[in-house]
Design a protein around this nucleic acid. Structure first.
Lengths: 176, 176
DNA sequence: GCAGCCATGTTATAGTATTGCAGAGACTGA
DNA sequence: TCAGTCTCTGCAATACTATAACATGGCTGC
């Protein structure tokens, strides 16, 4: 009955090469199934997003893209992002004006995000309880839900540990 | 045990003059209590936001402000908004890049919004259940919550009624 | 080939937000 | 009252985010 984690926090020791490849393979497959084209640009933008494995800004993506494709301009990256959003391959984080890869583009996903303010890592949840509670509250008020934007800011487990360790070094209870 | 509605949807028949005055009085009182200054500009921006009673864009506020204060520039309105956000007198709707008045600035408010895509009306909730469910899910994953951005898009009760009425006129079951 | 469609190139512009510095105004304590 | 200090505002410039509009090119099916 645990929480459904679509995309976990990036762990320092996870096989990142593999994780990027997986995401691209999933994307290839899904686009083929849906009869849409994962063109070179679109694929590259998706790869750039997954490679950093954290929320990416459109203009940062543009800079990267430009270094390898002189003709890249804002519409280039925004069009690619629009496509990827449409296909559910990425999500937009409203509170950051940034984009993250989706770990499970196939299933319907409302996009519930935990965002670390310290290291920028993002985890995506798709939790039925959260969805239901919100939907029920809305229904109580006669409101018809179309989409939900849920973005939780805070500190991820890794940064909490790191911070606590640092704190105990910097200001020991009886130190001086 | 109902849902705690901080700011309900604006009803066509509510006493809007009174509602704006209330908001300004609350703001005056709170700023006095907190030892901060609700200057003319800040007060005016807050009033402009409440007067429309829907999410207001910074540059729309700027246009209004400029019509009565030649010197108004982007920093003028953004500084006022920063102050009002700080004091909890307004909230920022991330998904709209817009600002709404807060119906209850005193109590801690996480900001849970129902946003009508049809008429732009916004209701603010402060629902313990929603907060708890999200906090618990985060805690399960070792995530320390700092702030929550919750924005639900959909159709408000009034627009649902209006739409249904219009639909039944436009496309009656056996009509031509 | 070529007609139609989709993706991309290109230029321009719209919309959102911040920086940095200078000057004006309000509080504080002598 | 006055100087010192702090906050607020004026002002100009710029950074950042996103879209519009039209031209070009390339694939697909015939």
């Amino acid at each position: 009955m645990g929480t459904n984690v679509v995309t976990p926090f990036k762990h320092a020791d996870h096989d990142h090469e593999h994780c990027v490849d997986d995401a691209l393979n999933r994307a290839e497959r899904q686009c083929r199934d849906n009869g849409v084209r994962l063109t070179a640009i679109r694929r590259r933008v998706l790869e750039l997003i997954w490679r950093r494995h954290e929320p990416m800004k459109a203009y940062d993506l543009l800079d990267m893209l430009r270094s390898e494709r002189r003709s890249a301009a804002p519409p280039t990256v925004y069009r690619a992002l629009d496509f990827l959003l449409e296909e559910g391959l990425v999500h937009r984080i409203e509170s950051l004006n940034a984009f993250v890869g989706c770990g499970d583009p196939k299933q319907p996903h409302v996009g519930q995000f935990l965002i670390c303010q310290h290291c920028n890592a993002v985890a995506e949840l798709n939790d039925g309880d959260v969805y239901r509670v919100l939907s029920n509250k809305a229904a109580e008020l006669g409101f018809q839900v179309n989409s939900q934007t849920i973005e939780i800011n805070g500190i991820c487990p890794a940064c909490r540990q790191a911070t606590q360790a640092a704190d105990s070094l910097e200001s020991p209870p009886n130190g001086g």
